[in-house]
């Protein structure tokens, strides 16, 4: 299979890339590692008229320390590069998700920024991005730079708040103190590896979960888009035992249904994955 014809430009710098997308043409797509976009183009589910290849922009690669113990991850950093960096183990949910994203070949080429901007409603990374409250730095030539909280970033299936003239530059992880203990657990669809339900839980508070002062939950694969389970979070902080609070994790969502998992099963699995993620996060506290 060959994609439909398109015009191709390669940007050498961020400024060059922003100039190439400055017209805000929705038929122009930014190409990073291509591990999501190219398969869709081959199936002709995506038919961009122009690709702006940012894959060679060195300034978008790599991981640096932020003051306060956080990390800034360049949007073009591959999953493999993240996996090989011992600093990511500060973030339990991130350490959990990296080995189950795609496969070796996909992780060698796929990038964190590309995946987030692609916004597949069943992407594994979405749940840890939400639970760890990642901050996404984006820039456009006309409007400059802005920082978007992960919770505000996703705007539907395969949709984000990024404008067509805007590009993701960096993904920031806050100081580990703010998300002292986190975990991600998913039920993968065995053939594709995509989560039927995937839940990341991040906890702050005293060990054992007895006095949880903060609870952030990201859910992927379950609803029409990836989401924060705000009601469950509030209920847990108010003192409800997690297993009880999590029963409504899929409430109010238009739960996805397909040949692998119908609505009821998927919603039930979301509850199970949430409990497992919570237990794993608690085990990491202290």
């Amino acid at each position: 299979m060959t994609p439909a014809a398109f015009a191709y430009s390669r940007a050498a710098t961020v400024d060059e890339a922003l100039d190439l997308i400055a017209a805000g043409d929705p038929a122009t797509r930014v190409l990073a590692g291509g591990q999501s976009l190219i398969p869709l183009m081959k199936l002709r589910l995506a038919r961009p008229e122009r690709l702006v290849d940012v894959g060679r922009i060195g300034e978008l690669r790599g991981i640096r320390d932020l003051s306060g113990g956080g990390l800034a991850v360049g949007a073009l950093t591959t999953w493999a590069a993240l996996l090989e960096d011992p600093r990511v183990t500060r973030y339990g949910a991130l350490a959990d998700v990296l080995p189950v994203i795609g496969d070796v070949q996909v992780r060698n080429r796929g990038t964190i920024g590309g995946s987030l901007a692609h916004a597949d409603p069943a992407s594994d990374i979405a749940a840890p991005a939400l639970a760890l409250e990642m901050e996404l730095v984006a820039r456009s030539a006309a409007r400059g730079e802005r920082t978007i909280a992960a919770a505000d970033f996703f705007a539907g299936a395969f949709a984000t708040v990024l404008g067509p003239d805007e590009m993701l530059l960096e993904v920031r992880l806050l100081g580990a103190g703010r998300s002292a203990a986190s975990a991600y657990v998913a039920l993968p669809q065995p053939a594709s590896g995509y989560p039927i339900a995937g839940v990341a839980v991040s906890l702050t508070g005293t060990p054992g979960g007895a006095a949880t002062t903060g609870c952030v939950i990201g859910v992927t694969g379950v609803g029409e888009q990836q989401y924060r389970a705000y009601d469950v979070e509030r209920s847990v902080v108010a003192g409800t035992p997690f297993a009880d609070a999590a029963k409504t994790i899929a409430a109010g969502q238009r739960v996805a249904s397909d040949i692998h998992a119908d609505r009821d099963y998927r919603a039930a699995m979301a509850v199970v994955m949430a409990r497992r993620a919570f237990d794993a996060a608690v085990a990491r506290q202290g």
């Binding site: 299979m1 291509g34 190219i38 070949q105 080429r109």
Partner: peptide, 29 residues
């Protein structure tokens, strides 16, 4: 498979295994 699933198209690109059915030739320049 030609859908990035089966891996029989795997080659090394700059020393790393990749699925060559999911890489544009221009990306490998």
């Amino acid at each position: 498979c030609d859908t990035s699933s089966c891996g029989t198209c795997t080659v090394h690109l700059d020393g790393r295994a990749v699925k060559s059915c999911t890489v544009l030739a221009v990306q490998a320049d």
